[in-house]
Structure formats: structure tokens, C-alpha cells
Simulated assay, not measured.
Amino acid sequence: MASWLSTNRKKSIHPYATKLKKMTFGVKGNDGFLYKLFIYGLLVGIGFVYLYPLLYMTSYSLKSLDDILNPLVNWLPTQLYLDNYEAAYSVLKFIPTLLETLYVTAIPAIVQTAVCAVIGYGFARFDFPFKRTMFVLVLSTFIIPPQVTVIPRYVFFNELGILGSIQSFLFPALLGQGINSAIFILIFYQFFKMLPKALEEAAQLDGAGFLRIFFTIALPMAGPAIIISFLFSFVWYWNETYLASIYFGNALTTLPLELQKFVATYQQMFPQEGDSSEINEGIKMAGTVMTILPMLLVYLVTQRWFVEGVDRSGIAGE
């Protein structure tokens, strides 16, 4: 009798234990409550690490000096204070500097993407002597720091008379030696390698030449590679301050370059507040927000194509 009751009790408890196990761990161990709680908690933590600097900058950029000095005001300012952005707008000379930044960033990025597509297609589809050696040499340029070649390039560009102009960025991009061009050549090489040769062979049977095949078949199908290469190239040219300061001098400027000398420019523009303590954290953060805001807008607009390009090309960014 006792064994019968024990067996029935186990049978009555078993369905509840199974249901609780499924709810907690899931059927396959990756769709239960605990698993999702761990994954979502991890994603929220990683997201907070990335978003914290943006939240900090935005919060401080909207604070007045009284809010900054008040220990009771932490994240939310007591009022919406926009004078910091007005001062940063004047110091950065925002609109002219933004247009100049787009000028020296977008054009080299477009040229670099186009040239790398041609080079990648050539390595992927044609056989020629020393092909592998040349491909290795092209890829090896990625591991060479730009500081190593900056002096000979500066001397060479000075002899050509292209210092202080966009040509100092445009000339290397035209020759496949722009900023991290080797990565984009590898991207296009891998993508064109995956395209079926039957499409090109069918086009050749119809009388199409190599250029027509490239522009009408290969290039339209390489949309994800084009998107990912252009966006990465645009970001790297935008953030480049070392080479830009050397090659451009005082002839051209960019928002990141203006941000580097933000404090000095502020002291020159407002000499009555020339003491370094007078430029508060809020004005500095406003200048930083205005510098990165165009890139955030570009990412928000192109986010769908960017994610699709990374997913389809299988490339992880830096």
C-alpha cells in the first residue's frame, strides 16, 4: 500500500517537475527562462558599456556650470541648457568644418571602394604570373603601421606638390593604397570568389567583354561588399587625425582635428575667459557630441544595409 501511494505521488509530481524544467531551461536548453535571462542580461550589460560614454557626454553637454558644480545633480540637469552647444558651434565653426570634413572623407572613400572592387575582382577572376606573391604583398601592407611610411610619403607628396590638398588622400586611394585598402581588397576578393562562374561564362558566350561582365554582373551582385567597404572607409577617413594633420597642415581641417585643439581655440575666441578653468566640462562634452553626431546619423540611416552587408559578407569590423 505504501509503495503504491509513493508511486502515484511520483507520477503526480512528475508532470509539474517536467513543466518547471521546460520553463526554466527550455526543451533544448537554449530557450528557457534562465538561459534567456542570462543572454539578455549579458546583452544589456555590454550595451550599457557602449552607451555609457554617450549618455555621459549628452548629460554633461546639457548642464549649466551650476549643475556641474552641484553634487546633487547627477544625470538629469535642472534645465535644458543649450549655451554649451552654442559655444561649441562657434569654436568648431561647425557648418564650414563639417562640409570640409565630408569633402576630404566621402570622396576618398568612394574612390577607394571603387578601386578596391576592381583590384579584388582582378585577383579573384584572372590568372597572371606571380599572382599569389602580389596578393600577399598587397595584404601585407595592412600590417605595416602608417607611421613607418609617413616620412617617405610626405617627401614624395611634397615633390609632387599635393600637400595641403585632398590629393594627398586621393592619390593613394587611386592606387589601392588608401587607409586600410588591403582589407577592402580582401573583402571584394572573397566576395567575387563566391560568385558562380557560370554567370560570367554565359555572358561571354553572348559576346560580353570583361568590363561589361564586371559592371553588369559582378558589381551589382557585390552590393553588400560595396556597402561594408564604403562605410568602413568613410569612418576610417573621418577619424584619421594623424595623417590628416601632417598632409593637410593648415590648408584643410576636419571636425576631429578641430576637436583636438578645442580648448586652445576656445581660449583664443573668448580671451576674457581665457583661464583653462573657465572652459567647463559641459562645453567640452558639447563639442565632442557635435563631432560624433554626423557619424551617428550616418549609422542610423544606413544601419539596415550595414548589418545586412556584414551578415552576407561574413566580415567583422574593427
Rank of each mutant, 00 (worst) to 15 (best):
Y81L: 07
P172L: 02
K11Y: 10
V49Y: 05
I185P: 09
E86R: 14
F184Q: 10
S276Q: 00
L300F: 15
L259E: 12
V91T: 13
Y154H: 04
D127S: 12
V298H: 09
P71T: 02
Y237P: 01
L211V: 13
A198K: 08
Y40E: 14
F214E: 07
L62T: 06
I46H: 00
L92N: 09
R9G: 05
D206E: 13
N158G: 05
G314H: 11
I217H: 15
S140C: 09
A244G: 02
I39K: 14
L55T: 08
R132V: 06
L205N: 05
K63D: 02
M1T: 08
V298W: 15
P294A: 15
L257H: 12
F135W: 09
T7F: 08
Y16I: 12
F262T: 13
W4N: 12
K36M: 14
K197H: 04
T288A: 14
T254V: 00
A222L: 02
Q190Y: 04
Q177Y: 09
Y266P: 01
Y60E: 11
L243C: 04
G249W: 04
Q204T: 15
V301F: 15
L219D: 01
A208H: 02
T302K: 02
K93W: 02
F48H: 03
Q260M: 14
E159G: 06
A218G: 03
Y35S: 10
P108D: 09
S181M: 01
F123Q: 12
W238Y: 15
G122L: 11
L293Q: 11
F48Q: 03
S59V: 01
F192N: 10
A208K: 09
D206R: 00
W4Y: 13
V138Q: 05
L297F: 15
S233D: 08
V138P: 02
I183W: 08
I187Y: 10
D67W: 08
F210E: 10
L160E: 10
E308D: 14
K21C: 15
E200R: 01
S245C: 07
I187R: 06
A88I: 08
V118C: 05
A124S: 15
N84I: 01
V136L: 08
I187F: 10
L257A: 10
A106C: 07
P271T: 03
G120I: 10
P224R: 07
F188S: 08
P77N: 11
